[in-house]
């Protein structure tokens, strides 16, 4: 029982980070219909900037909060400078994939140019304390992370459903032309969407760094893969699906790796992806996604 509880919380810890990055990916996808392969690297870059703040004397939790603002700016600026030129909802998927791969390469090696290739040590955001649950020692950090995820879900749920901005974002998602005709400034709204994704991504970045006790320029790549899996599992246009998808993938990976000897730690990615492919074959739109209707 103790081991099981331990594994569940390990799974939730990993899963919550996937969920947060998946949330960022889904927001970009919902707003602009684009898949941002560089989302993880944007988060890594933001976390390095947060490390600079930490380095000059700010506490790590405060730097992480500041990185929300930095992430927003990075996301918004990238949209305004680059992505907007791809031509909105009519951009070809290949062009979007290539430009975000370009960003990925640029940011990943850019971080090496700016901050060097050695990892920068950082502490845990919520300290190193432990709480006993069912006999297993669970880190306060994990509980804090789950709480942050909960807050993010509530805040973004309210933002999307209860505010003018949320309404504008949903209108742009549903039909850019109609939204523009209704007087919504599409470019500004999309810029805010990319900014919000950058901000959420920065949370995933801070927690990944603090889980590893270091900011490393390659830390977000594997998280990105899992986050994509989470978003695919939950449905690319469903924030709630992304969050549940992330938690499910984290749990399934941890438990299968822990209890099924054939899979073992070497094939950590396999269970999650097997799940994703099965779900995609049965429901191509994911668990909570809305089916895409194509008109010729």
């Amino acid at each position: 029982m103790q081991l099981f509880v331990q594994r569940v919380f390990d799974g939730l810890q990993a899963g919550a980070i996937y969920a947060i990055l998946a949330l960022a990916i889904v927001i970009v996808f919902r707003a602009s219909g684009m898949l941002n392969i560089a989302q993880g690297e944007i988060a890594m870059f933001t976390t390095f900037i947060a490390w600079n703040l930490f380095d000059v004397g700010l506490p790590w939790w405060a730097s992480s909060v500041a990185s929300l603002v930095i992430g927003f700016l990075v996301g918004a600026v990238l949209y305004r400078l680059l992505i907007v030129r791809l031509g909105g909802g009519h951009a070809s998927p290949l062009a979007v994939v290539m430009v975000t791969i370009g960003l990925f390469l640029m940011l990943n090696d850019g971080a090496a140019v700016i901050w060097g290739t050695t990892a920068k040590p950082v502490p845990r955001i919520f300290g190193t304390g432990r709480v006993e649950i069912f006999g297993a020692g669970v880190a306060v950090q994990v509980l804090g992370l789950l709480a942050v995820l909960g807050v993010l879900v509530v805040v973004f749920g309210l933002l999307f459903q209860r505010t003018k901005l949320g309404l504008a974002l949903r209108a742009v998602t549903s039909n850019q032309e109609s939204a523009a005709l209704a007087g919504i400034k599409v470019t500004t709204v999309l810029m805010i969407g990319w900014g919000l994704a950058g901000a959420i991504g920065s949370v995933a970045g801070s927690f990944t760094a603090s889980g590893n006790f270091a900011v490393d320029r390659n830390m977000m790549q594997i998280v990105l893969i899992y986050a994509f899996a989470a978003a695919t599992l939950g449905g690319f246009d469903s924030p709630l699906g992304a969050v549940l998808g992330g938690l499910i993938i984290g749990l399934v990976s941890e438990l299968v790796v822990g209890y099924v000897a054939i899979v073992g730690p070497d094939l950590r990615l396999l269970p999650g992806f097997a799940l994703v492919i099965i779900v995609l074959l049965v429901r191509p739109q994911g668990m909570f996604g809305s089916p895409k209707v194509v008109r010729a």
Partner: peptide, 17 residues
């Protein structure tokens, strides 16, 4: 070598745009 992908990424973005 760390500049390679920076150049590369920028070139790729410019080319696609």
């Amino acid at each position: 070598q760390q500049y390679t992908n920076v150049i590369f990424g920028i070139a790729l973005i410019v080319l696609i745009l």
